[in-house]
Design a binder for these strands. Structure first.
Lengths: 245, 245
DNA sequence: GTCTATAGGCGGATAGAC
DNA sequence: GTCTATCCGCCTATAGAC
């Protein structure tokens, strides 16, 4: 009995995954607004009504794809941060074996960019134009926060180590920055939080321009430009420049 | 005869405008990938086949909307730059009545943001996810460049006035930056061009995050954050901070 | 869970009359 | 330039049998 139930559950998981995979393929071909359960079913050799046992509506399928995409890009960022934290244990001869925060920042930024380049349509789904008529349920907010939290962690670490130069903060922003710090960046001073949020948006601006074609016929050396700009952004939130040890 | 032809031409222009207006409305409701000539015709009380006399295909209509949007946001940027150039002729008591470049930069950035907030769906059309299957014809590249050229002009002016602090430039970027300077930013040093292109992308990153919902439940004081970040970006391309005269 | 069948729509594009 | 008619395709969603 439990094996049967186990088999059924496994089958259900596999079919669900197949549906999402096919849906992701179609995102690329038609875009999120045109994602159609029927086309997915056809491609899978199923009948459209069968899909409704897995996703009660088109929007639920969309939500699943969005959550998966946020989780994937968030995981990429977290992994890059973790790797940088314990990299080069032998090669490094300094007293502190820790990688400087600015370098971790750039590594995370590059990991995010690389995920985006490898999954352009999923990136467009979460950071591109909103899908008209679709309203994101609360399920998406946790996954959506992951990349930002990685960046916050890096800055918090630098601050605790006394390694953060506070950037200037406009008067009109202080109250909001204090609220943000309390809401999701405890232990980071408001000056850094405001700069951090701006840097976060700007990082994705670079990626979006590259991915959405604004750099066509304009920028050739995109990775080099991105690295330079990401490093500048690290500096703008108060992290010490990588070369300045 | 000429009045008749004039009347016909006027009618054609009016109908064309009506079609584009209705199409813009539908952009908001369904998104660019779902824009449908048939729905536009229905709403206008025309029959679908009649639209083909004005736009030979759906993609041609889309192109017209894209060109219009780029032209509108470009005009907004140009106007902000022009107004700043000759503003406060009486109030200013300095010997040089010119507005400092960093201030003009911020004014242009704010104008672009305001246009975007006022026309979110047209903004999404040109700076959001690419429309799958649509390939932009060459007609769009001129209009698409206008905002960037305004920013370039500001920096060039500052450079000529000896008012530009060259930012650092990574080795891997120099050749590309020199090419860019030759291609579309003559008279601006490569260091500034590289920083400029990055700042351009980052500016739109701030706007896109605000417009596409990434700041929901995160940032409240969006204009203040934008102004601060835009000012920082001006500084990052080498313009002297506004308060430093 | 999957099937057939069905309701009640929608789309792009063209031909040929007026 | 606009009309009707047409081709041929597409969609979400549900009901009810197996």
């Amino acid at each position: 009995m439990s094996t049967i139930r186990g088999a059924r559950e496994r089958a259900r998981i596999e079919v669900t995954a197949a549906i999402k995979d096919e849906a992701r393929k179609q995102l690329a071909e038609e875009g999120a607004p045109k994602l159609s359960l029927r086309a997915v079913a056809r491609e899978l050799g199923m009948v459209s009504s069968a899909l409704y046992r897995y996703f009660p509506s088109r929007d639920d399928l969309l939500t699943a794809l969005i959550v998966d995409a946020f989780d994937a890009i968030g995981a990429a960022a977290e992994q890059a941060a973790a790797e940088q934290a314990r990299t080069e244990p032998a090669a490094e001869e300094q007293a502190s074996a820790e990688v400087p925060p600015a370098e971790r920042w750039v590594a995370v930024a590059c990991a995010v960019r690389e995920w985006a380049l490898a999954h352009p349509h999923e990136y467009a789904l979460i950071y591109g134009s909103p899908v008209p008529g679709y309203i994101a349920p609360m399920d998406t907010v946790g996954p959506a926060a992951r990349v930002g939290l990685v960046l916050i962690d890096i800055v918090r670490g630098a601050y605790r180590a006394g390694d953060l130069t506070l950037p200037p903060l406009a008067d009109g922003l202080r109250a909001d920055a204090e609220r943000m710090a309390a809401d999701f960046a405890e232990g980071v001073p408001p000056e850094a939080v405001a700069a951090l949020v701006a840097a976060w948006a700007q990082l994705f601006g670079l990626i979006s321009f590259e991915l959405f074609g604004q750099f066509n016929r304009v920028v050739e050396e995109r990775e080099a430009l991105f690295r330079q700009a990401a490093g500048e952004l690290a500096r703008s939130v108060g992290l010490r420049a990588a070369g300045t040890a």
